[in-house]
Design a protein around this nucleic acid. Structure first.
Lengths: 151, 151
DNA sequence: CTATGGATTGACGCTGACGTCAACGCAACA
DNA sequence: TGTTGCGTTGACGTCAGCGTCAATCCATAG
Protein backbone atom coordinates (compact mmCIF):
# COMPACT_ATOMS: atom_id res chain seq x y z
CA UNK A 1 0.00 0.00 0.00
CA UNK A 2 1.29 3.43 -0.90
CA UNK A 3 0.73 6.76 0.76
CA UNK A 4 -2.36 7.81 -1.20
CA UNK A 5 -4.23 4.63 -0.47
CA UNK A 6 -3.29 4.68 3.17
CA UNK A 7 -4.39 8.27 3.51
CA UNK A 8 -7.73 7.52 1.95
CA UNK A 9 -8.28 4.40 4.03
CA UNK A 10 -7.42 6.29 7.19
CA UNK A 11 -9.55 9.26 6.22
CA UNK A 12 -6.71 11.71 6.15
CA UNK A 13 -4.26 13.26 3.69
CA UNK A 14 -0.86 12.39 2.36
CA UNK A 15 0.50 15.59 3.83
CA UNK A 16 -0.62 14.47 7.24
CA UNK A 17 1.06 11.10 6.85
CA UNK A 18 4.32 12.67 5.80
CA UNK A 19 4.04 14.98 8.74
CA UNK A 20 3.52 12.07 11.11
CA UNK A 21 6.54 10.40 9.61
CA UNK A 22 8.58 13.54 10.18
CA UNK A 23 7.52 13.39 13.81
CA UNK A 24 8.67 9.79 14.02
CA UNK A 25 5.19 8.38 14.53
CA UNK A 26 5.26 6.39 11.32
CA UNK A 27 8.19 4.21 10.35
CA UNK A 28 8.37 3.99 6.64
CA UNK A 29 9.87 1.51 4.19
CA UNK A 30 10.56 2.47 0.59
CA UNK A 31 10.12 0.43 -2.56
CA UNK A 32 12.36 0.35 -5.62
CA UNK A 33 10.95 3.65 -6.89
CA UNK A 34 11.58 5.39 -3.60
CA UNK A 35 7.85 5.39 -2.83
CA UNK A 36 6.75 4.91 0.75
CA UNK A 37 5.27 1.48 1.42
CA UNK A 38 2.83 0.78 4.23
CA UNK A 39 1.13 -2.29 5.65
CA UNK A 40 -2.01 -3.04 7.63
CA UNK A 41 -0.21 -2.43 10.89
CA UNK A 42 0.46 1.13 9.79
CA UNK A 43 -3.22 1.54 9.17
CA UNK A 44 -3.94 0.38 12.70
CA UNK A 45 -1.41 2.84 14.05
CA UNK A 46 -3.01 5.60 12.03
CA UNK A 47 -6.49 4.78 13.21
CA UNK A 48 -5.22 4.90 16.77
CA UNK A 49 -3.66 8.29 16.21
CA UNK A 50 -6.72 9.73 14.52
CA UNK A 51 -9.04 8.40 17.21
CA UNK A 52 -6.97 10.04 19.91
CA UNK A 53 -6.62 13.29 17.97
CA UNK A 54 -10.37 13.43 17.59
CA UNK A 55 -10.61 13.26 21.35
CA UNK A 56 -8.33 16.22 21.74
CA UNK A 57 -5.05 14.42 22.36
CA UNK A 58 -1.97 16.18 21.12
CA UNK A 59 0.00 14.39 18.49
CA UNK A 60 2.84 13.90 20.92
CA UNK A 61 0.49 12.28 23.40
CA UNK A 62 -0.33 9.56 20.92
CA UNK A 63 3.28 8.38 20.86
CA UNK A 64 2.97 5.89 23.73
CA UNK A 65 -0.01 4.32 22.03
CA UNK A 66 1.87 4.06 18.78
CA UNK A 67 4.88 2.51 20.45
CA UNK A 68 2.63 0.13 22.28
CA UNK A 69 1.08 -1.05 19.06
CA UNK A 70 4.45 -1.37 17.42
CA UNK A 71 5.67 -3.43 20.36
CA UNK A 72 3.17 -6.04 19.24
CA UNK A 73 0.35 -5.37 21.66
CA UNK A 74 -3.15 -5.80 20.25
CA UNK A 75 -4.34 -2.42 21.54
CA UNK A 76 -2.56 0.89 21.83
CA UNK A 77 -3.64 1.25 25.43
CA UNK A 78 -2.26 -2.06 26.60
CA UNK A 79 0.84 -0.38 27.97
CA UNK A 80 1.33 1.56 31.21
CA UNK A 81 2.59 4.67 29.45
CA UNK A 82 -0.63 4.88 27.50
CA UNK A 83 -2.65 4.54 30.67
CA UNK A 84 -0.64 7.31 32.20
CA UNK A 85 -1.57 9.53 29.26
CA UNK A 86 -5.22 8.61 29.80
CA UNK A 87 -4.95 9.65 33.42
CA UNK A 88 -3.24 12.91 32.65
CA UNK A 89 -5.88 13.66 30.06
CA UNK A 90 -8.65 12.92 32.51
CA UNK A 91 -7.13 15.34 34.99
CA UNK A 92 -6.79 17.94 32.25
CA UNK A 93 -10.37 17.44 31.17
CA UNK A 94 -11.66 17.74 34.70
CA UNK A 95 -9.69 20.92 35.29
CA UNK A 96 -10.82 22.34 31.98
CA UNK A 97 -14.46 21.52 32.58
CA UNK A 98 -14.34 23.09 36.02
CA UNK A 99 -12.73 26.20 34.62
CA UNK A 100 -15.23 26.48 31.81
CA UNK A 101 -18.11 26.07 34.21
CA UNK A 102 -16.85 28.82 36.44
CA UNK A 103 -16.41 31.11 33.44
CA UNK A 104 -19.85 30.15 32.23
CA UNK A 105 -21.34 31.17 35.52
CA UNK A 106 -19.59 34.47 35.54
CA UNK A 107 -20.55 35.32 31.99
CA UNK A 108 -24.09 34.21 32.70
CA UNK A 109 -24.22 36.46 35.74
CA UNK A 110 -22.86 39.40 33.81
CA UNK A 111 -25.39 38.88 31.07
CA UNK A 112 -28.24 38.67 33.54
CA UNK A 113 -27.10 41.80 35.32
CA UNK A 114 -26.72 43.72 32.08
CA UNK A 115 -30.04 42.51 30.73
CA UNK A 116 -31.86 44.08 33.65
CA UNK A 117 -31.01 47.66 32.69
CA UNK A 118 -32.19 47.51 29.13
CA UNK A 119 -34.89 45.54 27.37
CA UNK A 120 -33.06 42.67 25.73
CA UNK A 121 -32.84 42.02 22.01
CA UNK A 122 -34.02 39.14 19.84
CA UNK A 123 -32.53 35.65 20.16
CA UNK A 124 -30.37 34.76 17.27
CA UNK A 125 -28.54 31.68 15.92
CA UNK A 126 -25.24 30.99 17.65
CA UNK A 127 -22.33 29.17 16.07
CA UNK A 128 -20.49 27.39 18.83
CA UNK A 129 -17.15 25.80 18.41
CA UNK A 130 -14.99 24.07 20.91
CA UNK A 131 -11.53 23.17 21.82
CA UNK A 132 -10.78 19.97 23.57
CA UNK A 133 -7.76 20.76 25.57
CA UNK A 134 -4.25 20.83 24.29
CA UNK A 135 -3.90 22.75 21.03
CA UNK A 136 -2.46 26.20 21.42
CA UNK A 137 -2.33 26.52 25.21
CA UNK A 138 -2.58 30.31 25.18
CA UNK A 139 1.09 31.30 25.38
CA UNK A 140 1.78 31.20 29.11
CA UNK A 141 5.30 32.42 28.56
CA UNK A 142 5.07 34.82 31.45
CA UNK A 143 5.74 33.04 34.71
CA UNK A 144 2.70 33.16 36.91
CA UNK A 145 3.31 33.27 40.66
CA UNK A 146 0.76 30.74 41.89
CA UNK A 147 -3.00 30.74 41.67
CA UNK A 148 -4.03 32.27 38.39
CA UNK A 149 -7.05 32.01 36.22
CA UNK A 150 -5.90 29.87 33.38
CA UNK A 151 -7.13 31.34 30.13
CA UNK B 1 -0.02 59.14 30.44
CA UNK B 2 2.35 57.42 28.03
CA UNK B 3 2.44 53.88 26.87
CA UNK B 4 4.76 52.47 29.51
CA UNK B 5 2.71 53.81 32.39
CA UNK B 6 -0.55 52.64 30.87
CA UNK B 7 0.88 49.18 30.29
CA UNK B 8 2.01 48.93 33.87
CA UNK B 9 -1.25 50.23 35.27
CA UNK B 10 -3.20 47.78 33.14
CA UNK B 11 -0.90 44.90 33.98
CA UNK B 12 0.22 44.29 30.44
CA UNK B 13 3.04 45.26 28.11
CA UNK B 14 3.70 48.06 25.67
CA UNK B 15 3.86 45.54 22.88
CA UNK B 16 0.34 44.43 23.70
CA UNK B 17 -0.93 48.00 23.68
CA UNK B 18 0.62 48.71 20.32
CA UNK B 19 -0.90 45.50 19.04
CA UNK B 20 -4.34 46.52 20.29
CA UNK B 21 -3.88 49.84 18.58
CA UNK B 22 -2.98 48.07 15.34
CA UNK B 23 -6.24 46.14 15.68
CA UNK B 24 -8.12 49.37 16.09
CA UNK B 25 -9.12 48.73 19.69
CA UNK B 26 -7.21 51.69 21.03
CA UNK B 27 -7.46 55.15 19.54
CA UNK B 28 -4.29 57.00 20.14
CA UNK B 29 -3.31 60.63 20.28
CA UNK B 30 0.29 61.74 19.94
CA UNK B 31 2.15 64.48 21.77
CA UNK B 32 4.75 66.89 20.37
CA UNK B 33 7.44 64.20 20.49
CA UNK B 34 5.31 61.72 18.60
CA UNK B 35 4.76 59.69 21.78
CA UNK B 36 1.39 58.03 22.29
CA UNK B 37 -0.74 59.75 24.91
CA UNK B 38 -3.49 58.02 26.86
CA UNK B 39 -6.11 59.02 29.35
CA UNK B 40 -8.12 57.34 32.11
CA UNK B 41 -10.78 56.28 29.65
CA UNK B 42 -8.17 54.29 27.77
CA UNK B 43 -7.31 52.56 31.00
CA UNK B 44 -10.95 51.60 31.46
CA UNK B 45 -11.08 50.27 27.93
CA UNK B 46 -7.97 48.25 28.58
CA UNK B 47 -9.29 46.81 31.81
CA UNK B 48 -12.42 45.78 29.96
CA UNK B 49 -10.40 44.05 27.29
CA UNK B 50 -8.16 42.26 29.74
CA UNK B 51 -11.10 41.11 31.84
CA UNK B 52 -12.78 39.60 28.80
CA UNK B 53 -9.58 38.03 27.52
CA UNK B 54 -9.06 36.36 30.88
CA UNK B 55 -12.47 34.79 30.44
CA UNK B 56 -11.51 33.35 27.10
CA UNK B 57 -12.96 36.00 24.82
CA UNK B 58 -11.14 36.56 21.57
CA UNK B 59 -9.69 39.98 21.07
CA UNK B 60 -12.14 40.62 18.27
CA UNK B 61 -15.03 39.76 20.56
CA UNK B 62 -14.07 42.57 22.89
CA UNK B 63 -14.67 45.15 20.18
CA UNK B 64 -18.36 45.76 20.94
CA UNK B 65 -17.52 46.36 24.59
CA UNK B 66 -14.80 48.79 23.62
CA UNK B 67 -17.07 50.67 21.27
CA UNK B 68 -19.75 50.72 23.92
CA UNK B 69 -17.39 52.33 26.40
CA UNK B 70 -16.18 54.80 23.84
CA UNK B 71 -19.78 55.71 23.06
CA UNK B 72 -19.92 57.09 26.58
CA UNK B 73 -21.68 54.25 28.35
CA UNK B 74 -20.53 53.59 31.89
CA UNK B 75 -20.06 49.85 31.32
CA UNK B 76 -18.83 47.97 28.29
CA UNK B 77 -21.82 45.66 28.43
CA UNK B 78 -24.45 48.40 28.35
CA UNK B 79 -24.97 47.90 24.63
CA UNK B 80 -26.95 45.24 22.78
CA UNK B 81 -23.96 44.12 20.70
CA UNK B 82 -22.06 43.31 23.85
CA UNK B 83 -24.99 41.32 25.18
CA UNK B 84 -25.10 39.43 21.95
CA UNK B 85 -21.45 38.50 22.43
CA UNK B 86 -22.27 37.33 25.94
CA UNK B 87 -25.00 35.11 24.58
CA UNK B 88 -22.83 33.67 21.87
CA UNK B 89 -20.13 32.97 24.38
CA UNK B 90 -22.57 31.25 26.68
CA UNK B 91 -23.69 29.00 23.86
CA UNK B 92 -20.07 28.27 23.01
CA UNK B 93 -19.25 27.49 26.58
CA UNK B 94 -22.22 25.18 26.94
CA UNK B 95 -21.34 23.33 23.77
CA UNK B 96 -17.74 23.08 24.80
CA UNK B 97 -18.53 21.83 28.26
CA UNK B 98 -20.88 19.21 26.86
CA UNK B 99 -18.25 18.09 24.38
CA UNK B 100 -15.57 17.88 27.02
CA UNK B 101 -17.80 15.89 29.29
CA UNK B 102 -18.57 13.40 26.59
CA UNK B 103 -14.88 13.04 25.83
CA UNK B 104 -14.15 12.72 29.50
CA UNK B 105 -16.58 9.85 29.77
CA UNK B 106 -15.11 8.07 26.80
CA UNK B 107 -11.55 8.44 27.98
CA UNK B 108 -12.61 7.37 31.45
CA UNK B 109 -14.27 4.30 30.04
CA UNK B 110 -11.25 3.42 27.96
CA UNK B 111 -9.01 3.80 30.94
CA UNK B 112 -11.22 1.62 33.08
CA UNK B 113 -11.40 -1.03 30.40
CA UNK B 114 -7.65 -1.01 29.88
CA UNK B 115 -6.91 -1.04 33.58
CA UNK B 116 -8.72 -4.33 33.98
CA UNK B 117 -6.24 -6.32 31.92
CA UNK B 118 -3.12 -5.22 33.73
CA UNK B 119 -2.38 -4.14 37.27
CA UNK B 120 -2.17 -0.38 37.14
CA UNK B 121 0.89 1.73 37.95
CA UNK B 122 1.55 4.40 40.56
CA UNK B 123 -0.32 7.72 40.52
CA UNK B 124 1.77 10.59 39.46
CA UNK B 125 1.56 14.37 39.33
CA UNK B 126 -0.49 15.70 36.42
CA UNK B 127 -0.02 19.12 34.88
CA UNK B 128 -3.38 20.19 33.52
CA UNK B 129 -3.89 23.15 31.31
CA UNK B 130 -7.00 24.43 29.71
CA UNK B 131 -8.42 26.32 26.86
CA UNK B 132 -11.45 28.42 27.27
CA UNK B 133 -13.01 28.36 23.89
CA UNK B 134 -12.05 30.40 20.91
CA UNK B 135 -8.29 30.40 20.30
CA UNK B 136 -7.17 28.18 17.45
CA UNK B 137 -10.42 26.53 16.37
CA UNK B 138 -8.67 23.41 15.00
CA UNK B 139 -8.59 24.23 11.28
CA UNK B 140 -11.99 23.15 10.01
CA UNK B 141 -10.99 23.93 6.46
CA UNK B 142 -12.51 20.73 5.15
CA UNK B 143 -16.25 21.08 4.74
CA UNK B 144 -18.03 18.69 7.05
CA UNK B 145 -21.38 17.34 5.89
CA UNK B 146 -23.34 17.61 9.14
CA UNK B 147 -22.84 15.85 12.43
CA UNK B 148 -19.14 15.59 13.20
CA UNK B 149 -17.20 15.24 16.36
CA UNK B 150 -15.73 18.65 16.78
CA UNK B 151 -12.12 18.30 17.80
C1' DC C 1 29.45 65.19 26.88
C1' DT C 2 27.50 61.07 27.71
C1' DA C 3 24.96 57.66 29.89
C1' DT C 4 20.41 56.15 30.92
C1' DG C 5 15.68 55.33 30.28
C1' DG C 6 11.74 55.43 27.71
C1' DA C 7 9.71 56.18 23.23
C1' DT C 8 9.34 55.12 18.11
C1' DT C 9 8.91 51.86 13.82
C1' DG C 10 9.71 47.52 11.48
C1' DA C 11 10.35 42.89 11.15
C1' DC C 12 10.95 38.22 12.45
C1' DG C 13 9.80 34.29 15.92
C1' DC C 14 6.75 31.21 18.29
C1' DT C 15 3.14 27.43 19.04
C1' DG C 16 0.49 22.82 16.36
C1' DA C 17 -0.93 20.47 12.80
C1' DC C 18 -1.13 20.52 8.96
C1' DG C 19 -2.56 23.19 3.77
C1' DT C 20 -0.70 24.64 -0.35
C1' DC C 21 2.16 25.47 -3.71
C1' DA C 22 6.53 24.49 -6.81
C1' DA C 23 9.34 21.69 -9.50
C1' DC C 24 10.35 17.42 -10.37
C1' DG C 25 10.35 11.87 -11.37
C1' DC C 26 8.18 7.64 -12.98
C1' DA C 27 4.74 4.62 -14.97
C1' DA C 28 0.81 3.44 -17.59
C1' DC C 29 -2.52 4.56 -21.16
C1' DA C 30 -3.98 6.57 -25.66
C1' DT D 1 4.42 11.53 -27.79
C1' DG D 2 1.83 13.43 -24.95
C1' DT D 3 -0.89 13.50 -20.83
C1' DT D 4 -2.76 12.02 -16.87
C1' DG D 5 -2.02 10.59 -12.19
C1' DC D 6 0.47 9.18 -8.67
C1' DG D 7 4.75 9.78 -6.07
C1' DT D 8 8.93 12.68 -4.25
C1' DT D 9 11.26 16.82 -1.49
C1' DG D 10 11.36 21.55 0.13
C1' DA D 11 9.60 25.50 1.69
C1' DC D 12 6.37 28.89 2.81
C1' DG D 13 1.44 30.05 4.70
C1' DT D 14 -2.17 29.76 8.28
C1' DC D 15 -4.46 31.04 12.81
C1' DA D 16 -3.88 34.56 17.66
C1' DG D 17 -1.59 37.20 20.39
C1' DC D 18 1.73 38.78 21.38
C1' DG D 19 7.61 38.21 22.52
C1' DT D 20 11.91 39.69 21.07
C1' DC D 21 15.20 41.98 18.83
C1' DA D 22 17.27 46.10 16.13
C1' DA D 23 18.12 50.68 14.94
C1' DT D 24 16.95 55.16 16.01
C1' DC D 25 15.18 59.33 18.51
C1' DC D 26 14.31 62.36 22.64
C1' DA D 27 14.96 64.35 27.13
C1' DT D 28 16.83 64.48 31.47
C1' DA D 29 20.57 63.51 35.09
C1' DG D 30 25.18 63.32 36.11
Amino acid sequence: MRIGELAERAGTTTRTLRYYESRGLLTVARDAQGYRTFGEDDLRVLRQIRALRENGFELEETRPFVECLRAGHPEGDSCPDSLEVYRRKLAELDACIAELRSVREEVGARLARAEVEATAGSPHGPEPRCELAPPNPVPDTRQEPEGDTMP
